[in-house]
Design a binder for these strands. Structure first.
Lengths: 347, 347
DNA sequence: TATTGCGCTTAGAGCGCTCTAGTGCCATCA
DNA sequence: TGATGGCACTAGAGCGCTCTAAGCGCAATA
């Protein structure tokens, strides 16, 4: 069997390596219609009779036609591509990616991933996406200086997830740290705790937010004089040493809220080694609802950021910007929720 | 300032949204050369004088030219694209991705990622990559039936990482489980252990490999009668319950090798709760060298799979296949190595 | 009867590159 | 002197799509 150009037409399973893949032209020839019409059918848009549609689809199927994304992207005036930068090291980013794929799917956009690795920085990752002429960028936990992000935002819609910028001209999707901390404190207070300490996350902006939120939440319960902040960090290690600090101190709190789940894991480990029972002696709450915290043997009560929701909001905001909607606010603040597991109990 | 087509030519920072991006044509007009020559310069291939090269680069810089990947891909007869499928949930995959980017970079191939999520299966992920006309596919921990992989392999070079297939016609990159287990047992024996138990990983092929390897390694040391296999699984949970089983049993081994790091984490936790000191009372070795095992408070001795090496081998094999090299063997078996940390000690 | 409109279809012009097959030009050599 | 070859450069034909404008046949309308 030969097509109009004299090359062999075979089913896809029989086609060997290197053989040219069938194109719209080939399908058109086989179905006895024009290339344009095949394009219409393949795209699934209106403009072809039911009968032709079936005939074309059948022909496409028979010769194993598969649309060429490269050509499609080039020919479209808009690429309908959503570029996503993410850090390969962050478990939370991968949770977000799941949601982004799902939302993009239903918005008829395609996703292009560009990873940050220790040897591939954000600038590089973004360059790649711009090369594909993505219509918009969703950046997960962007690390670039604010000015660079703003600059980028002037060129195309940019949505930064999990980062706060003041006076931003790009869209921001992030968690309401204050609400999260309030929920954690509320929960503990309801369980009868008063001496609730916070192991902080050091000097990062996010750590500052959470520290401040902790203070506010404590005061709201009239526990201003019980506020106790232990310097920590963003690693399990720092949680572990904070725990030791706490133990040496003698006057142990009855509950601890850590900066994040990693810190909580370190803390739990130290407590366990010191013979302190959790939650019997001390209640512990983490922050982030990472995979770690869900491990059955850790079973950590933690403040969860709703990854699915964040992803969906980010995609929808990008799509809205692309549709030219005028949206005044730049901040999308997501309320987190407390996931109560096994590390908190009544006093 | 206007270009040959009468549209405004401005620097990239001044260009607003929606304005057409400059093309080769624009650069050519500005530099006073042909489009083809600009292409030569931008690609960095031979065929332009040093003087012109500089002039073209300057012009490109001035108007903020950035190559259009879509057009470039379409025009090239080979896309020079390496498609990578990976599971967004697997930490090990993200380690591999780091290495893949690095190796592809130096081989002058570009990487396209396609993620597997709970709602996006492998078939879908592969479809996307085929749509981009990737020259070869690297599949991390592929989940598809062997027949489907073989089928795919008939269409283009496919490298499966971390999966074994017998009589495969696609390339396989995986760890030498036997060597890993041997190293673990050797290490323990050298430390004076004899009662070395194995908590297995259930019914998966990999678990079977490791179980068999454990038996072989034990016999090699004349410890055939000390072989003790406790049914486990692929979660921390299963490690924890296996530990309880071990403790109830009374006759505790002096060392345990688990199926993977997750299992080891569960085991450690159970031991800790039961007042069993590690490594003083029992030594523990995990498998995989996951991020978990590196956490300072876990500090797990484990068998490490060299992700960087595996990634580089996968890429190089793909490139070799694409260069048409005739390579007879399909299996690339990587020796793992033992990472000695804090959970093993002399008996 | 001429006109309009509609549904189905097609021709053909791009999209922004790469790559082959040249064209000049100049130095080299017989 | 003409032939040879190498270097710098260019023209132009794709790559496989999308999309606009237009064609065609047929029914409805003036």
């Amino acid at each position: 069997m030969l097509d109009t150009k004299g090359r062999a037409v075979t089913g896809q399973s029989a086609r060997g390596r290197g053989a040219k893949r069938p194109t719209l032209e080939d399908v058109a020839a086989r179905a006895g219609v024009s290339r344009a019409l095949v394009s219409i059918v393949i795209r699934g848009v209106a403009g072809a009779s039911e009968e032709t549609r079936e005939r074309v689809l059948k022909a496409a199927e028979e010769i194993g036609y598969r649309p060429d994304t490269r050509a499609r992207l080039l020919a479209r005036n808009s690429s309908r591509l959503l570029g996503v930068t993410f850090n390969v090291q962050h478990a939370f980013h991968t949770d977000l990616i799941e949601g982004i794929y799902a939302s993009a799917d239903s918005s008829d956009y395609e996703v292009v991933l560009s990873a940050l690795t220790p040897r591939r920085d954000e600038r590089r990752a973004v360059e790649t996406l711009l090369g594909y002429r993505c219509d918009a960028l969703i950046m997960l936990g962007p690390e670039s200086p604010a000015a660079m992000l703003e600059d980028l935002g002037r060129r195309l819609p940019v949505i930064a997830v999990g980062r706060r910028l003041r006076e931003s001209s790009i869209d921001l999707v992030h968690t309401d740290e204050e609400a999260g901390m309030r929920q954690a404190v509320d929960h503990l207070v309801k369980l009868g705790h008063r001496d609730i300490a916070h192991i902080d996350g050091g000097r990062s902006p996010k750590a500052t937010d959470r520290r401040r939120a902790y203070r506010t939440a404590m005061r709201r319960h009239g526990l201003g004089n019980c506020i106790r902040i232990i310097p920590g960090g963003q690693t399990a290690e720092s949680g572990a040493s904070a725990a030791r600090l706490l133990l040496e101190d003698g006057e142990s709190p009855t509950a601890v809220i850590t900066y994040d789940d990693d810190g909580a894991a370190g803390l739990l480990d130290s407590f366990l080694r010191a013979g302190i029972a959790v939650p019997e002696d001390v209640s512990v709450i983490g922050f982030d609802d990472s995979r770690l915290s869900r491990l059955s043997h850790v079973n950590l009560t933690t403040v969860s950021q709703d990854a699915g929701r964040m992803a969906s909001l980010a995609v929808h905001r990008a799509v809205a910007r692309l549709s030219g909607d005028e949206i005044a606010d730049r901040d999308l603040v997501i309320p987190p929720h407390l996931v109560v597991r096994g590390t908190t109990a009544a006093r």
